[in-house]
Amino acid sequence: MIRLTNVAKEYPRSGVALAQVSFQVKKGEFVFLTGPSGSGKTTILKLLYMDDKPSEGEVWINGVSSKTAKGREISRLRRRIGIVFQDFRLLEDRTAEANVRFALEVTGSPKATIRAKVSRALTQVGLASKATSYPRELSGGEQQRVAIARALINDPFVLIADEPTGNLDERATRGVFQLLRDINASGTAVIMATHDLDLVRRSNYRTIELNHGRLVFDSAESPASARPPEESLELTDASGDYRESI
């Protein structure tokens, strides 16, 4: 489904961002992308949603190659990819519902189906009751849920999340992470870049670690390496509800 082959990325000013990176992600897989700041995590994600192209090598995603993909094909591909960022990227002057609806409107979805789809996505992230709230009226965790609802609206085959819990407190982090696990359990692959090693250690998901633009560890390639997954942490709180308190 996703394949990177000898991918390198060099920027004219900042130099080498990625070198000789190769890995595959299977359908429905959950993958952590870890590494220190500047290690190339965000660059890989950008290459995946084709916001940038590799200087060398090739990125294949859902049958689209970075070597041949152009404007309209990239736009169509992005409709099948959900993207979530640390800073949520919501439109402040629109309600939660309008933010989610926006993704359908600007991709030309039939008007008749929009209302039902938006309602379903907000329910899926547990925010049906906050549909008419503006981002400033929502907590960080809730804003991230709106962003996830927007990312899910077109039934993506993969959800790409760049530090989705980076701006959240621990409780909200657990809630958002559990939501991503649920999304993955329903069949959507998730690729999540994160600094939060605690989160990585407590789960059994595949981990790819980068350093200085090089892939230094892939738990799928060396499962018996020095990083055995610790016992998976149960992410439910005392009430059994994984969502953070509002």
Binding site: R79, V106, N154
Partner: peptide, 17 residues
């Protein structure tokens, strides 16, 4: 600018933007 960047991320074509 923010609206434009979101439009691109969710798959709006450049012409549409």
């Amino acid at each position: 600018a923010k609206e434009i960047s979101i439009m691109r991320l969710v798959g709006a074509t450049d012409m549409f933007i």
